[in-house]
Each structure stands twice: as C-alpha cells, then as structure tokens.
C-alpha cells in the first residue's frame, strides 16, 4: 500500500471529499474548459482578473480524486497571484510531475501541491493532475509564455 498511500495522501482525499472554491463565479471574467477524452473527465475553471492578478477563482469538475484535488488546491494557491506568477507555478508543477524535475523534492513555493508527488509513480494519472491547470492556462495562454506551455503540452 505504500505507493498507494503516497498517491492518496490525506490532503488529496480531503480536497477530493471537500473541494475548495467549488462552483462557478458570479462575476468571472473568463472560464476555461478541459476534458480528458481517455476517461471522459471534465473540468471548468472560472476566474476573475483585475489589474493583472487573479482576484477570484473557482472550479467545477467531474473527475477522479487526483484531478479533483489538484483543481481544488490550484484555486487556493493561485488566488491573488499575478498572471506571470501563476504561470510560473504551473511550469514549476509540471516540471516536478514530469521528466524535467521528476525525481526532485517539490519546492516550498508549491505548498500543498507537494501532495501530488505520488502521481509520478503512475504515469497514466499525470494528465489527471494537470487537467484543471490546462483548462486555465490553455485559455489564459495569450502570452508568449503561455503559448509555449501549450505547444509543449503534457
């Protein structure tokens, strides 16, 4: 069960059971949708941009514990961040979930997202962990950096 308990850490199970910032926003400025055609999971992320920062963010999803928890934690960590900061965090997360920094400890900057480290042992589930992030940044990816993220894909 060790790899399993590493995958389904308390914090993941908790966010799965009690997702934070769940639902749509009344005054969102944009929304992004993501789906995984492999499994049919769907997520919609709503956010409100004000003076270059993410003032509010929420999500709605039908998905597994990993995608649900990742989306929930994402809304917590990105709230109040500037678009550039948010993109940097996404890039950092992706690097630590995939090959680039796949064997390294999660940096403190990623906070609770470190709980997603267990996903690295389950390559088929990495898409689950990045689904909501893609839904957000694929739509937000107007900047050159955002586009680059898109092209490299997961």
């Amino acid at each position: 069960m060790s790899e399993l308990t590493e995958l389904y850490q308390e914090i993941i199970l908790d966010h799965n059971k009690y997702p934070r910032n769940y639902g749509s926003l009344v005054d969102f400025t944009a929304k992004g949708e993501g789906n995984n055609p492999l499994c049919g999971d769907e997520v919609t992320v709503y956010w409100k941009l004000g003076s270059g920062a993410i003032e509010a963010i929420s999500f709605q999803a039908r998905g597994c514990a990993i995608s649900q928890a990742s989306a929930s934690m994402m809304t917590r960590i990105l709230k109040g961040k500037s678009v550039a900061e948010a993109q940097e965090l996404f890039q950092l997360l992706r690097r630590h979930l995939t090959q680039a920094d796949g064997d390294k400890e999660f940096p403190e900057k990623l906070g609770d997202l470190a709980a997603l480290a267990g996903v690295r042992k389950y390559p088929a589930r990495i898409k689950c962990a990045t689904l909501a992030w893609h839904a957000l940044f694929d739509k937000m990816g107007g900047s050159a950096q955002g586009r680059e993220l898109l092209i490299r894909g997961d």
């Binding site: 399993l4 995958l7 389904y8 999971d41 998905g63 597994c64 514990a65 990993i66 589930r125």
Partner: peptide, 14 residues
Amino acid sequence: EGVHPHDIATVLDA
C-alpha cells in the same frame, strides 16, 4: 458512491 472509477481501478491494481 464518493469514489471515482479511476481511483477504484488504481487501488484495485495495487
């Protein structure tokens, strides 16, 4: 109830 099928499959696999 309360468990997504993917999570079921992953735990069963273990």
